[in-house]
């Protein structure tokens, strides 16, 4: 088996006495995109900042192509980063912005030439001499990505780059970004708190919560066999019954009467929505928490029961 391109080995970050994250390990092959998903405040951004060199790990090791990354100064790390905001420098034109990093290493002429050809490729060649405030949010974020890629980093870090954009633009842009990263064969780590975005952009996804990577794998593995209740509730569409058992939400049904073969929860029907021709009920459990289940042909009723068929109950496969 070949050596991984990027190898993150049991890194930890402690701030004062709080552990932000402990003992994280994962590795990536060249050109692979890893989505890092999880609720906000779990240290996803901190992890990226530590890899980038803007912050420091308390412990652990990061190897890239077999050489130690962490003992390199930020200036010499082959790592690029795109932030939540595009952060184009407001006093420079689009061309100057994109060429900024390359200009420092390779001189103005080569930098401008390269920036021009990249900007043409991403359809921004009409805006070369415009200032950032004249560009749309999507154009700015595309420019920020090109700016980071121009330095040809070995690893690109993307910290929720779409979070400041409106939903429609987000959708267009994430498809474009994935295609672009794949074309450049760019090894990347992409942080998001949106599970759909994680699936769309990443080859694999790591679900991070409570300071640990709870599970890492292909979308199918995470979605269909979550290892614990946390992953299930964050990444999958399931009803968590307790610490060991769950039921896929699509197998549950709504009923106005209790049942004998299986489990049931008393609940209140709040609303309904339609997706791909099916009707879904949004119900509020009496015990707290709200879930979405297929509504079937049932008429909406204010009070009723969520029925979990006995043979659809599954067990978490903790490793």
């Amino acid at each position: 088996m070949s050596l991984p391109y990027l190898d993150v080995k049991s890194v930890s970050k402690t701030f004062d006495t709080n552990n932000i994250f402990t003992d994280l390990s994962f590795s990536l092959q060249k050109g692979e995109i890893l989505s890092l998903a999880g609720p906000s405040g779990t240290g996803k951004s901190t992890l990226l900042r530590c890899i980038a060199g803007l912050d420091y790990f308390s412990q652990g090791e990061v190897m890239i192509e077999g050489s130690d990354l962490l003992n390199k100064q930020i200036k010499h790390r082959p790592v690029g980063m795109v932030f939540q905001q595009a952060l184009l420098f407001p006093h420079m034109t689009l061309l100057e912005n994109v060429a900024y990093g390359k200009k420092l290493t390779d001189g103005k002429k080569q930098a401008y030439e390269m920036a021009r050809s990249y900007l043409k490729e991403v359809g921004l060649d009409q805006q070369l001499n415009q200032y950032p405030h004249e560009l749309s949010g999507g154009q700015q974020q595309r420019a920020a990505l090109v700016r980071a890629l121009l330095l040809k980093p070995k690893l690109l870090l993307l910290d929720e780059p779409f979070s400041s954009l409106d939903p429609g633009l987000r959708k267009d842009l994430r498809e474009w970004v994935r295609a672009f990263l794949k074309k450049e064969d760019m090894t990347s780590i992409f942080v998001t708190h949106d599970k759909e975005e994680a699936m769309l952009l990443g080859d694999r996804t790591a679900v991070m919560a409570e300071g640990r990577i709870q599970q890492i794998g292909y979308p199918e593995e995470l979605y269909h066999s979550p290892q614990n209740a946390l992953v299930a509730s964050l990444y999958s569409d399931v009803i968590v019954l307790d610490k060991t058992r769950y039921c896929p939400a699509e197998k549950a049904r709504w009923s106005s009467e209790k049942t004998v073969d299986g489990e049931w929860f008393a609940a209140e029907w709040v609303n309904e929505t339609y997706h791909f021709g099916r009707r879904y009920a949004h119900v509020l459990l009496d015990g707290g928490g709200s879930i979405t289940i297929p509504a079937g042909e049932q008429h909406s009723a204010l009070k009723g029961y969520v029925i979990i068929p006995e043979d659809e109950i599954r067990y978490f496969h903790a490793q």
Binding site: L54, K75, G80
Partner: peptide, 18 residues
């Protein structure tokens, strides 16, 4: 000036003075 804008500069390999 957002702090991240200066971090961005550093990520683009600008030294402190640059």
């Amino acid at each position: 000036i957002p702090q991240d804008m200066l971090s961005q500069g550093r990520m683009l390999k600008a030294g402190v003075w640059q």
